[in-house]
Amino acid sequence: MSQKTYRDAIREALREEMLRDERVLIMGEEVGVWGGTYAVTRGFYSEFGDKRILDTPIAEEAIVGTAVGAAMGGLRPVAELMTINFALVAMDQIVNNAAKIHYMFGSQVRVPLVIRAPAGWGQLAATHSQSFEAWFAHLPGLIVVMPGTPYDAKGLLKTAIRSDNPVMFIEHARLYGVKGEVPDEEYTLPIGVSDVKRPGRDVTIVSYSRMLHVALGAAEELATAGIECEVIDLRTLRPLDMAPVYASVEKTHRAVIVEEDWTTCGMGAEIAARIGRDRFESLDAPVERMGQVDVPMPYAKNLEELMFPDEKSVAEKVRDMVA
């Protein structure tokens, strides 16, 4: 084991899979000569050359559409979208082509494709600060992975690249510098398996991606007050593994979902509905949801800081739930 950043873990996964399988290629804006907007693919252009690291024009519909076609034609492309916001431009390719082709043609075609895209924010205002995972998780035919730690990011990305299905692999710009334990030896992680990141008996906190760290921070603080939270990291949003969530709720009888997306029609709504239906008898309190304020992202720093749940607000919510 050694300490690696989320960025390096993703870089290692890409590099290892490029070396392992020559059908893997990377395409996107600034992935080559520039070395990746978030430096994930730095050095790849000189190592793998311009046939496998393809710089593209600013045309997300072409990046994703071409990657879908290349996947149909026998390659295993990894398409990088500079940020998840730009997936909007490629939405038809993701929704109608990547996610539908296998079903619509009666399984004649496979689309072994990974679309990597970071969520994130930082005084970028309304168009560049979004988090659309619920939209993608809504779609049959697509796998949606949203890792929160370097270990999970590497193991899940390797599995995503080896998968014969289209995978939306949503990273987080504010996690690229976060460090964590990553094995030096080869490993992969299964898609569709949620992970208990911290055991506890009092309240279940369900989270993923950056909010996982907020949840863990809140749990740490609450532990000093004798409140033990169980923190569950979904890791994969579709297919959704609810088993650890149910096992936890049976124990704690209380759950809160903490997400970075808007809560209206979000992942938290889905999870709350499932808990309500499948573990209604276990609940001692309504399932709570926390997410970004239901407005477009403002530019001003003080306003932006009000947008998301933080350790303090999550801890407060949990205290209310056990009060």
Binding site: T66, G69, A70, L75, P77, D92, Q93, N97
Partner: peptide
């Protein structure tokens, strides 16, 4: 679609399959 005859399908969103054609051609070149 009849993939064994290299017919990769009809697509009903106007223009939506043009990048797929580019991708298929990229795979052939690669």
């Amino acid at each position: 679609a009849d993939v064994k005859r290299h017919v990769w399908g009809g697509y009903a969103i106007v223009g939506g399959h043009i990048p797929l054609a580019t991708g298929l051609a990229l795979a052939n070149q690669y």
